[in-house]
């Protein structure tokens, strides 16, 4: 990572955190979380684990896609090409910018988690750190996938098609397949409901998928590929292992 990519990431992270898609996602997540955490009849676990990935995850995906494709859409590509910053560094900046929505997600689950753990809001069962970590990880993965989509499929309908694919995957028939998706719905009315399997392995699985998306985005840019390909293979193996270990 270079200083340019870091500076680019910092500035773009601020833009991304204020992006209308992200703000809408945050607003909806806050509404659902406070509803789930209110009173003993709420489902704190579901509120903490589902609101952020369900609302902020897709929002981060679309916002990061729009941000990463902004030069192309605005017609600034030629100008940007004449700068000393390579396409790979620009992609690195776009990937680092996903930190903006991730920080928002961490803030949300941190605040809601504190209310849940300290005051017992939302009632039992208590969510673990592994439970609440899955939300920010989905937001991170969504953002990074949005950037990868912008680089690999530079056309307007691509993010919609990718999101449609993700939705279909999450609705896949067999439970084993559903458990391998980034988002699994737990009945909100069922206060004791918990996604079966290991959340810690699920988090590792999500982390590997997110980094795979980042690697894919970098691979779409000109430059040395060897280490990226090696990283991709390692991450794919990690995702396969963690995906298998997370199953009940």
């Amino acid at each position: 990572m270079t200083a340019v990519a870091a500076a680019l990431g910092l500035v773009q992270a601020r833009h991304l955190a204020r992006h209308p898609w992200v703000l809408v996602g945050v607003g909806l997540a806050v509404l659902v979380m406070q509803y789930g955490l209110r009173g003993p009849e709420g489902n704190g676990l579901a509120a903490l684990t589902q609101a952020v990935p369900f609302y902020l995850g897709p929002a981060a995906f679309f916002a990061a896609n729009l941000a990463a494709s902004r030069d192309r859409r605005a017609g600034t590509s030629e100008l940007v090409t004449a700068s000393p910053t390579t396409s790979r560094r620009r992609a690195s900046g776009a990937l680092l910018a996903v930190g903006g929505p991730v920080l928002l997600a961490l803030g949300l689950v941190g605040a809601a988690g504190a209310a849940h753990w300290i005051s017992g809001a939302g009632g039992p069962p208590r969510a673990t750190v592994a439970d609440v970590a899955s939300g920010p990880l989905v937001v991170c993965g969504g953002g990074l996938l949005g950037v990868a989509t912008a680089y690999w499929a530079p056309f307007r309908t691509a993010p919609i098609l990718v999101m449609a694919g993700l939705v279909l995957w999450c609705q896949a028939g067999r439970m084993e397949w559903q458990l391998l998706t980034p988002y699994v719905e737990v009945p909100a009315a069922d206060a004791g409901a918990r996604v079966p399997g290991s959340m810690a392995w699920h988090d590792l699985y999500l982390g590997c998928l997110a980094l795979l998306a980042a690697t894919a985005a970098l691979l779409a840019t000109p430059g040395p590929r060897r280490w990226l390909l090696i990283a991709g293979v390692v991450l794919a193996a990690g995702a396969a292992l963690a995906g298998w270990r997370q199953l009940p």
Binding site: A3, V4, A6, A7, L8, V11, H15, R70, A74, G75, T76, E78, L79, V80, A82, S83, P84, T85, R90, G93
Partner: peptide, 27 residues
């Protein structure tokens, strides 16, 4: 300065030039 340069519509004038300044390695 290209002939047809697109400028990000929702950036402020400052933000746009600042963005290009970063790309010109002014960190």
């Amino acid at each position: 300065l290209p002939q047809d340069v697109g400028i990000h519509r929702f950036f402020t004038a400052f933000e746009f030039v600042d963005y290009i300044a970063i790309l010109k390695e002014m960190v």
